[in-house]
Design a protein around this nucleic acid. Structure first.
Lengths: 143, 143
DNA sequence: AAGAATAAAGACTCTTTAATCCTAATTTAA
DNA sequence: TTAAATTAGGATTAAAGAGTCTTTATTCTT
């Protein structure tokens, strides 16, 4: 459903939202906190920077931070930045050209399920995820 | 969501249901009809045979056919036979150990979406898909 | 019994994703 | 101005999924 790069991106964004008061946070520190490889996470953060979800600063005291309020960033922003839109448009049976005018046997059913998923992505803000994580003691790391 | 092997398996099962009167059908012919590579489809059919969804016969006049009524085979039988249960159980953020007692921030939301998907897999029979394909002229092949 | 057609099984190759490594560019601080 | 810390970016390696090829075993037909 989501690539691992995308999953790491979501975890990093939640982490940034929970530490927004810290200003710029080094990518290495985020990787250590989340137990994600630093070079891989670097690449992912670059994509988030390119899509203006995150701003970065080089040099000492540098790092990354959210470009805007966590309540104005939804999951779908992150997914589109990293995975693109193909998951949102592809046929569940992989038939090229599948659509409402040339549907596959699962088209209607699948469209309904996918719509629910997309609404979840659109309606869930990073701020909400961060808040839930704090209040309910949820996990961002393996265990 | 589904591997390509699984998608081909679903297409092949629908094809078999639509041609159940033909008895054993050579895998090569199915591959040609569906525009799927024959050696790859062979492997997939072997998995379906191993899970008793399909029976096979070697030699001339051999091939494969459904092991039981198409109305008693649901999509989930095929998905489990080929992709296993990991999609049904894995955490959307990829956190090992994620579950109701140690949830990730998306656990509840994702569980709800996935439940809808699983119900679709459980409630959709191969017979229904074959019937819809016939009646509505749906496609099983790229175009 | 021999030959032909077929599925079964395993080894192999290709492509994509995941992850790493290394160098360059930038910024701060001493 | 120099050194250290950091992101940026390209090149490289590793792993997994997708797909192919070859050989073997089985079955029917003649």
């Amino acid at each position: 459903m989501l690539t691992s790069a995308c999953r790491y991106g979501v975890l990093a964004m939640i982490h940034l939202a929970r530490n927004v008061d810290a200003g710029f946070i080094p990518v290495r520190q985020i990787g250590n906190d989340l137990d994600v490889s630093n070079p891989f996470l670097s690449k992912i953060m670059q994509q988030l920077v390119a899509h203006d979800l995150v701003v970065s600063l080089r040099g000492p005291t540098g790092g990354v931070k959210l470009s805007k309020s966590a309540s104005s960033i939804v999951l779908n922003d992150i997914v589109e930045a990293i995975d693109g839109r193909k998951m949102l448009e592809s046929c569940v049976l992989g038939l090229p050209g599948c659509g409402s005018n040339a549907p596959c046997p699962l088209h209607e059913t699948w469209t309904s399920v996918r719509t629910d998923f997309c609404q979840m992505l659109e309606n869930t803000t990073v701020a909400t995820l961060a808040k839930n994580t704090d209040e309910q003691g949820l996990r961002l790391v393996p265990g």
